[in-house]
Protein backbone atom coordinates (compact mmCIF):
# COMPACT_ATOMS: atom_id res chain seq x y z
CA UNK A 1 0.00 0.00 0.00
CA UNK A 2 1.20 3.45 -0.87
CA UNK A 3 1.90 5.44 2.28
CA UNK A 4 1.09 8.67 0.49
CA UNK A 5 -2.56 7.77 0.01
CA UNK A 6 -4.97 8.64 2.81
CA UNK A 7 -6.21 5.56 4.69
CA UNK A 8 -9.58 4.30 3.41
CA UNK A 9 -12.72 5.07 5.44
CA UNK A 10 -13.04 1.43 6.39
CA UNK A 11 -10.53 -1.34 5.98
CA UNK A 12 -10.39 -5.01 6.91
CA UNK A 13 -7.14 -6.84 6.29
CA UNK A 14 -5.81 -10.33 6.86
CA UNK A 15 -8.92 -11.48 8.74
CA UNK A 16 -8.66 -15.08 9.90
CA UNK A 17 -11.56 -16.77 11.65
CA UNK A 18 -11.98 -20.35 12.84
CA UNK A 19 -15.13 -22.07 14.06
CA UNK A 20 -13.56 -24.93 15.95
CA UNK A 21 -11.83 -27.01 13.27
CA UNK A 22 -13.35 -25.22 10.29
CA UNK A 23 -11.65 -22.20 8.81
CA UNK A 24 -14.28 -19.63 7.92
CA UNK A 25 -12.02 -16.79 6.82
CA UNK A 26 -8.41 -17.08 5.68
CA UNK A 27 -6.94 -13.64 5.28
CA UNK A 28 -9.88 -11.70 3.88
CA UNK A 29 -9.28 -8.09 2.86
CA UNK A 30 -11.64 -5.34 1.83
CA UNK A 31 -11.97 -1.60 2.10
CA UNK A 32 -14.44 1.09 1.22
CA UNK A 33 -14.94 4.83 1.19
CA UNK A 34 -17.68 6.95 2.72
CA UNK A 35 -20.86 6.94 0.63
CA UNK A 36 -19.93 3.67 -1.13
CA UNK A 37 -21.80 0.40 -1.18
CA UNK A 38 -19.54 -2.65 -1.23
CA UNK A 39 -21.16 -5.93 -2.05
CA UNK A 40 -19.75 -9.21 -0.73
CA UNK A 41 -20.78 -11.74 -3.32
CA UNK A 42 -20.18 -15.46 -3.25
CA UNK A 43 -21.77 -18.89 -2.97
CA UNK A 44 -23.30 -19.87 0.36
CA UNK A 45 -20.75 -20.94 2.92
CA UNK A 46 -17.97 -18.85 1.35
CA UNK A 47 -17.53 -16.80 4.53
CA UNK A 48 -19.27 -13.57 3.57
CA UNK A 49 -21.61 -13.58 6.59
CA UNK A 50 -18.67 -14.51 8.82
CA UNK A 51 -16.74 -11.49 7.56
CA UNK A 52 -19.75 -9.30 8.27
CA UNK A 53 -20.01 -10.70 11.80
CA UNK A 54 -16.33 -10.03 12.41
CA UNK A 55 -16.78 -6.42 11.27
CA UNK A 56 -19.82 -6.03 13.57
CA UNK A 57 -17.84 -7.48 16.48
CA UNK A 58 -20.03 -10.57 16.85
CA UNK A 59 -17.09 -12.89 16.15
CA UNK A 60 -13.50 -12.50 17.33
CA UNK A 61 -11.01 -13.10 14.52
CA UNK A 62 -7.86 -15.14 15.21
CA UNK A 63 -5.82 -12.61 13.23
CA UNK A 64 -6.23 -9.49 11.12
CA UNK A 65 -6.96 -5.81 11.42
CA UNK A 66 -10.10 -3.71 11.25
CA UNK A 67 -10.04 0.07 11.04
CA UNK A 68 -12.86 2.57 10.75
CA UNK A 69 -11.84 6.20 10.19
CA UNK A 70 -8.32 5.19 11.18
CA UNK A 71 -9.46 3.77 14.54
CA UNK A 72 -8.63 0.17 15.42
CA UNK A 73 -12.01 -1.57 15.84
CA UNK A 74 -10.93 -4.93 17.24
CA UNK A 75 -10.81 -3.98 20.93
CA UNK A 76 -14.12 -2.09 20.68
CA UNK A 77 -17.18 -4.12 21.82
CA UNK A 78 -20.08 -4.46 19.38
CA UNK A 79 -22.35 -1.97 21.10
CA UNK A 80 -19.72 0.77 20.93
CA UNK A 81 -18.62 0.29 17.32
CA UNK A 82 -21.30 2.47 15.79
CA UNK A 83 -21.84 -0.13 13.08
CA UNK A 84 -25.38 -1.00 12.12
CA UNK A 85 -26.29 -4.54 11.11
CA UNK A 86 -29.41 -5.66 9.32
CA UNK A 87 -30.10 -9.36 9.73
CA UNK A 88 -31.36 -11.83 7.21
CA UNK A 89 -34.23 -12.81 9.55
CA UNK A 90 -34.67 -9.09 10.39
CA UNK A 91 -34.40 -9.86 14.13
CA UNK A 92 -37.21 -7.46 15.01
CA UNK A 93 -37.88 -7.37 18.76
CA UNK A 94 -41.17 -9.23 19.26
CA UNK A 95 -42.07 -7.38 22.47
CA UNK A 96 -41.88 -3.92 20.82
CA UNK A 97 -44.10 -2.38 18.16
CA UNK A 98 -42.82 -0.92 14.89
CA UNK A 99 -41.96 2.54 16.23
CA UNK A 100 -40.43 1.11 19.43
CA UNK A 101 -38.22 -1.18 17.35
CA UNK A 102 -36.93 1.78 15.33
CA UNK A 103 -36.45 3.79 18.50
CA UNK A 104 -34.41 1.13 20.31
CA UNK A 105 -31.02 2.28 19.01
CA UNK A 106 -31.86 5.93 19.68
CA UNK A 107 -32.68 5.08 23.29
CA UNK A 108 -29.35 3.30 23.63
CA UNK A 109 -27.66 6.46 22.36
CA UNK A 110 -29.30 8.39 25.22
CA UNK A 111 -30.86 10.95 22.91
CA UNK A 112 -33.53 13.26 24.32
CA UNK A 113 -37.06 11.98 24.09
CA UNK A 114 -37.93 14.65 21.56
CA UNK A 115 -34.94 13.80 19.39
CA UNK A 116 -35.82 10.08 19.63
CA UNK A 117 -39.35 10.74 18.46
CA UNK A 118 -38.24 13.01 15.65
CA UNK A 119 -35.69 10.58 14.27
CA UNK A 120 -38.00 7.60 14.63
CA UNK A 121 -40.65 9.44 12.62
CA UNK A 122 -38.07 10.43 9.99
CA UNK A 123 -36.75 6.90 9.63
CA UNK A 124 -40.27 5.48 9.29
CA UNK A 125 -41.13 8.10 6.68
CA UNK A 126 -37.95 7.27 4.75
CA UNK A 127 -38.98 3.65 4.38
CA UNK A 128 -42.66 4.50 3.89
CA UNK A 129 -43.85 2.85 7.10
CA UNK A 130 -45.21 5.87 9.02
CA UNK A 131 -48.73 4.47 8.95
CA UNK A 132 -47.51 1.30 10.68
CA UNK A 133 -45.84 2.97 13.67
CA UNK A 134 -48.10 1.39 16.30
CA UNK A 135 -48.39 -1.98 14.58
CA UNK A 136 -47.30 -5.20 16.26
CA UNK A 137 -44.27 -6.51 14.34
CA UNK A 138 -45.68 -10.04 14.33
CA UNK A 139 -48.43 -8.88 11.99
CA UNK A 140 -46.20 -7.43 9.25
CA UNK A 141 -45.53 -8.99 5.86
CA UNK A 142 -42.00 -9.94 4.87
CA UNK A 143 -41.49 -6.75 2.88
CA UNK A 144 -42.83 -4.61 5.71
CA UNK A 145 -40.57 -6.29 8.24
CA UNK A 146 -37.65 -5.64 5.93
CA UNK A 147 -38.50 -1.92 5.80
CA UNK A 148 -38.81 -1.71 9.59
CA UNK A 149 -35.48 -3.49 10.00
CA UNK A 150 -33.90 -1.05 7.56
CA UNK A 151 -35.39 1.95 9.35
CA UNK A 152 -34.16 0.54 12.66
CA UNK A 153 -30.60 0.19 11.46
CA UNK A 154 -30.63 3.58 9.71
CA UNK A 155 -32.15 5.57 12.60
CA UNK A 156 -29.04 5.73 14.85
CA UNK A 157 -27.04 6.97 11.80
CA UNK A 158 -24.31 4.34 11.99
CA UNK A 159 -20.90 5.11 10.50
CA UNK A 160 -21.05 1.86 8.59
CA UNK A 161 -24.13 -0.17 7.74
CA UNK A 162 -23.89 -3.92 7.25
CA UNK A 163 -26.67 -5.80 5.47
CA UNK A 164 -26.69 -9.60 5.64
CA UNK A 165 -28.74 -10.93 2.71
CA UNK A 166 -31.50 -8.50 3.66
CA UNK A 167 -33.73 -9.61 0.80
CA UNK A 168 -32.99 -13.30 1.12
CA UNK A 169 -36.35 -14.29 2.55
CA UNK A 170 -38.52 -12.21 0.22
CA UNK A 171 -40.18 -13.16 -3.05
CA UNK A 172 -38.62 -12.12 -6.37
CA UNK A 173 -40.93 -9.19 -7.12
CA UNK A 174 -40.56 -7.56 -3.70
CA UNK A 175 -36.80 -8.11 -3.98
CA UNK A 176 -36.44 -6.26 -7.27
CA UNK A 177 -38.42 -3.33 -5.97
CA UNK A 178 -36.64 -3.11 -2.62
CA UNK A 179 -33.11 -3.40 -3.91
CA UNK A 180 -33.47 -0.13 -5.80
CA UNK A 181 -35.02 1.55 -2.77
CA UNK A 182 -32.27 0.36 -0.45
CA UNK A 183 -29.58 1.69 -2.78
CA UNK A 184 -31.34 5.02 -2.94
CA UNK A 185 -31.80 5.24 0.85
CA UNK A 186 -28.19 4.36 1.62
CA UNK A 187 -26.86 6.87 -0.88
CA UNK A 188 -29.30 9.55 0.32
CA UNK A 189 -28.04 9.05 3.87
CA UNK A 190 -24.43 9.28 2.62
CA UNK A 191 -23.62 6.02 4.40
CA UNK A 192 -20.89 3.51 3.79
CA UNK A 193 -22.47 0.08 3.52
CA UNK A 194 -21.42 -3.52 3.09
CA UNK A 195 -24.08 -5.70 1.52
CA UNK A 196 -23.89 -9.47 1.56
CA UNK A 197 -25.64 -11.52 -1.11
CA UNK A 198 -25.23 -14.65 -3.18
CA UNK A 199 -27.32 -13.25 -6.02
CA UNK A 200 -25.24 -11.54 -8.74
CA UNK A 201 -28.26 -9.67 -10.14
CA UNK A 202 -28.86 -8.13 -6.74
CA UNK A 203 -25.17 -7.30 -6.43
CA UNK A 204 -25.11 -5.55 -9.84
CA UNK A 205 -28.19 -3.52 -8.92
CA UNK A 206 -26.95 -2.28 -5.57
CA UNK A 207 -23.17 -2.17 -5.49
CA UNK A 208 -20.61 0.50 -6.26
CA UNK A 209 -17.95 -2.15 -5.72
CA UNK A 210 -18.30 -5.91 -5.66
CA UNK A 211 -15.94 -8.22 -3.78
CA UNK A 212 -16.26 -11.82 -4.95
CA UNK A 213 -15.56 -14.31 -2.18
CA UNK A 214 -14.84 -17.98 -2.16
CA UNK A 215 -13.61 -20.35 0.57
CA UNK A 216 -12.97 -17.59 3.08
CA UNK A 217 -11.03 -15.35 0.71
CA UNK A 218 -11.83 -12.30 -1.37
CA UNK A 219 -10.77 -13.12 -4.94
CA UNK A 220 -11.42 -9.85 -6.73
CA UNK A 221 -12.85 -6.46 -5.89
CA UNK A 222 -14.02 -4.17 -8.69
CA UNK A 223 -16.79 -2.07 -10.07
CA UNK A 224 -19.68 -4.29 -11.21
CA UNK A 225 -19.15 -3.64 -14.96
CA UNK A 226 -15.39 -4.28 -14.79
CA UNK A 227 -15.93 -7.42 -12.81
CA UNK A 228 -18.33 -8.71 -15.41
CA UNK A 229 -16.20 -7.68 -18.35
CA UNK A 230 -12.83 -8.65 -16.97
CA UNK A 231 -12.84 -11.30 -14.29
CA UNK A 232 -9.34 -12.18 -13.15
CA UNK A 233 -9.73 -15.84 -12.24
CA UNK A 234 -11.68 -18.86 -13.51
CA UNK A 235 -13.82 -18.92 -10.32
CA UNK A 236 -14.93 -15.30 -10.73
CA UNK A 237 -15.54 -15.84 -14.45
CA UNK A 238 -17.68 -18.91 -13.81
CA UNK A 239 -19.55 -17.15 -11.01
CA UNK A 240 -20.69 -14.56 -13.57
CA UNK A 241 -21.93 -17.25 -15.91
CA UNK A 242 -18.87 -17.58 -18.18
CA UNK A 243 -18.00 -21.04 -19.47
CA UNK A 244 -15.46 -20.58 -22.23
CA UNK A 245 -12.28 -20.97 -20.22
CA UNK A 246 -9.39 -22.39 -22.22
CA UNK A 247 -6.11 -23.69 -20.92
CA UNK A 248 -3.03 -21.98 -22.40
CA UNK A 249 -1.07 -24.79 -24.09
CA UNK A 250 2.08 -22.87 -25.00
CA UNK A 251 3.09 -19.25 -25.06
CA UNK A 252 5.65 -17.49 -27.26
CA UNK A 253 6.07 -13.82 -26.42
CA UNK A 254 2.58 -12.37 -26.29
CA UNK A 255 1.08 -15.16 -28.41
CA UNK A 256 -0.75 -17.80 -26.37
CA UNK A 257 -1.86 -21.00 -28.09
CA UNK A 258 -5.11 -22.75 -27.10
CA UNK A 259 -7.36 -25.43 -28.55
CA UNK A 260 -9.34 -22.71 -30.29
CA UNK A 261 -6.37 -20.94 -31.82
CA UNK A 262 -3.69 -18.45 -30.89
CA UNK A 263 -4.48 -15.19 -29.14
CA UNK A 264 -2.46 -12.10 -28.26
CA UNK A 265 -2.24 -11.71 -24.48
CA UNK A 266 -0.59 -9.63 -21.80
CA UNK A 267 1.38 -11.37 -19.06
CA UNK A 268 1.70 -15.12 -18.57
CA UNK A 269 -1.86 -16.39 -17.96
CA UNK A 270 -2.63 -20.04 -17.36
CA UNK A 271 -6.09 -19.68 -18.80
CA UNK A 272 -7.91 -17.52 -21.29
CA UNK A 273 -11.54 -16.53 -21.05
CA UNK A 274 -13.42 -16.15 -24.30
CA UNK A 275 -16.20 -13.87 -23.03
CA UNK A 276 -19.61 -14.98 -24.29
CA UNK A 277 -20.30 -11.39 -25.37
CA UNK A 278 -17.24 -11.53 -27.63
CA UNK A 279 -18.32 -14.56 -29.66
CA UNK A 280 -20.02 -13.64 -32.94
CA UNK A 281 -22.32 -16.46 -34.08
CA UNK A 282 -23.70 -17.25 -37.50
CA UNK A 283 -25.35 -20.19 -39.23
CA UNK A 284 -23.75 -19.09 -42.52
CA UNK A 285 -20.04 -19.69 -43.23
CA UNK A 286 -17.83 -16.61 -43.37
CA UNK A 287 -14.21 -15.60 -43.59
CA UNK A 288 -11.98 -16.75 -40.67
CA UNK A 289 -14.96 -18.22 -38.82
CA UNK A 290 -14.45 -21.46 -36.89
CA UNK A 291 -16.96 -24.12 -37.77
CA UNK A 292 -18.50 -26.44 -35.17
CA UNK A 293 -21.48 -28.69 -34.48
CA UNK A 294 -24.32 -27.55 -32.23
CA UNK A 295 -24.62 -29.80 -29.16
CA UNK A 296 -27.46 -27.97 -27.40
CA UNK A 297 -29.75 -25.06 -28.16
CA UNK A 298 -31.89 -23.32 -25.52
CA UNK A 299 -34.38 -20.59 -26.32
CA UNK A 300 -33.87 -17.63 -23.91
CA UNK A 301 -36.36 -15.06 -25.21
CA UNK A 302 -34.19 -12.57 -27.09
CA UNK A 303 -31.51 -15.15 -27.98
CA UNK A 304 -30.71 -18.82 -28.35
CA UNK A 305 -28.10 -20.04 -25.94
CA UNK A 306 -25.90 -22.43 -27.91
CA UNK A 307 -23.20 -24.88 -26.91
CA UNK A 308 -21.22 -26.14 -29.83
CA UNK A 309 -18.04 -28.15 -30.28
CA UNK A 310 -15.13 -26.50 -32.09
CA UNK A 311 -11.76 -28.34 -32.25
CA UNK A 312 -12.90 -30.65 -29.40
CA UNK A 313 -13.75 -27.62 -27.25
CA UNK A 314 -17.28 -26.80 -26.11
CA UNK A 315 -18.03 -23.12 -26.60
CA UNK A 316 -21.01 -21.31 -25.10
CA UNK A 317 -22.35 -18.47 -27.19
CA UNK A 318 -25.57 -16.68 -28.09
CA UNK A 319 -27.48 -16.24 -31.35
CA UNK A 320 -29.84 -13.27 -31.48
CA UNK A 321 -33.32 -14.69 -31.89
CA UNK A 322 -35.08 -12.00 -33.87
CA UNK A 323 -33.42 -12.49 -37.31
CA UNK A 324 -32.98 -16.20 -37.54
CA UNK A 325 -34.74 -19.53 -37.58
CA UNK A 326 -34.29 -21.88 -34.59
CA UNK A 327 -30.83 -23.51 -34.73
CA UNK A 328 -30.96 -27.33 -34.59
CA UNK A 329 -28.80 -29.71 -32.63
CA UNK A 330 -26.27 -31.34 -34.98
CA UNK A 331 -26.31 -28.37 -37.35
CA UNK A 332 -23.07 -26.58 -38.25
CA UNK A 333 -22.50 -23.20 -36.66
CA UNK A 334 -19.75 -20.62 -37.31
CA UNK A 335 -18.12 -18.45 -34.64
CA UNK A 336 -15.72 -15.53 -34.77
CA UNK A 337 -13.89 -14.38 -31.65
CA UNK A 338 -13.39 -10.67 -30.89
CA UNK A 339 -9.73 -10.40 -29.71
CA UNK A 340 -10.79 -7.60 -27.30
CA UNK A 341 -12.95 -10.14 -25.44
CA UNK A 342 -10.17 -12.62 -24.82
CA UNK A 343 -9.28 -12.14 -21.16
CA UNK A 344 -6.23 -13.62 -19.44
CA UNK A 345 -7.03 -15.45 -16.19
CA UNK A 346 -4.70 -16.23 -13.32
CA UNK A 347 -5.18 -19.39 -11.27
CA UNK A 348 -7.85 -19.34 -8.55
CA UNK A 349 -6.62 -17.93 -5.19
Amino acid sequence: MNAQLPAPFFQASGIVLHYGETVALQGSECSLERGQILCLLGPSGCGKTSLLRVIAGLERPAAGQLTLQGQNLLPVPTHQRGIGLMFQDFALFPHLNVAENVRFGLKMADLTRREQEKRTAEALTQVGMSAFAKRDVAHLSGGEKQRVALARSLAPQPKLLLLDEPLGSLDANTREQLVVEIRHLIHAAGLAAIYVTHDRGEAFAIADQIAVMNAGKILQTDEPARLYRAPRSPFVARFFGQENILAVLTQEGDRARTELGTFKVRGQPNHLLIHTDGVETSLIPSNRAIAGLIRSSTYRGNHYELRSVHHDTVVKHALAAHHTRAPQVGETVYIRIDPACVIPLADDG
Binding site: G82, I83, F87, A91, F104, M108, R152, P156
Partner: peptide, 21 residues
Protein backbone atom coordinates in the same frame (compact mmCIF):
# COMPACT_ATOMS: atom_id res chain seq x y z
CA UNK B 1 -33.14 -16.05 18.71
CA UNK B 2 -29.41 -15.24 18.99
CA UNK B 3 -29.89 -12.64 16.26
CA UNK B 4 -32.12 -10.61 18.61
CA UNK B 5 -29.28 -10.24 21.13
CA UNK B 6 -26.88 -9.42 18.31
CA UNK B 7 -29.29 -6.88 16.82
CA UNK B 8 -29.56 -5.16 20.20
CA UNK B 9 -25.76 -5.09 20.45
CA UNK B 10 -25.32 -3.54 17.01
CA UNK B 11 -27.91 -0.93 17.99
CA UNK B 12 -25.66 0.13 20.85
CA UNK B 13 -27.07 -1.88 23.78
CA UNK B 14 -24.45 -2.86 26.38
CA UNK B 15 -24.73 -6.35 27.92
CA UNK B 16 -26.75 -5.12 30.94
CA UNK B 17 -29.06 -3.10 28.69
CA UNK B 18 -29.53 -6.14 26.47
CA UNK B 19 -30.66 -8.12 29.48
CA UNK B 20 -33.02 -5.50 30.88
CA UNK B 21 -34.48 -4.24 27.62
Amino acid sequence: APSLREAAATLGAAPAQRWFR
